[in-house]
Amino acid sequence: MKIQLLQICHARSGDKGDTANVGLIAREQKYYSIIEKHITADVVKKHFEGICLGKVERFELPNLWALNFLLHNSLGGGGTKSLKNDAQGKTLSSALLRMEIEIKESKL
């Protein structure tokens, strides 16, 4: 079945220069294995096509049921240089939660 990440996750994002970080957190521990399996760096890079112009790095925090993504070259130069309304990437968290993934129904 198809689910949207919003159903099983919450998220927070922010900036470090021109790199955005998006922390993706499973709402319950049992959902962590789903995001760990499905939400790879490649999947996130594809999702943010046209927004993230650099590479995507993924880090796992199973203790917090969370993944941390670094989206390089994503904020129009970052800081006071950026011409973006969201120069600090604050809303990239909810942009990631838009993602839809196909999972086995038994998982939910």
Binding site: A11, R12, D15, G23, I25, F59, L64
Partner: peptide, 30 residues
Amino acid sequence: QIVTEQLLYEIGNPKEYITPDCVADFTSIQ
């Protein structure tokens, strides 16, 4: 959930949160 969101805010490699005081490992936090 709320504290977790803040822990994920503006971090890079969670195993190496570097400050002048130490290198903290966010993957150890319970």
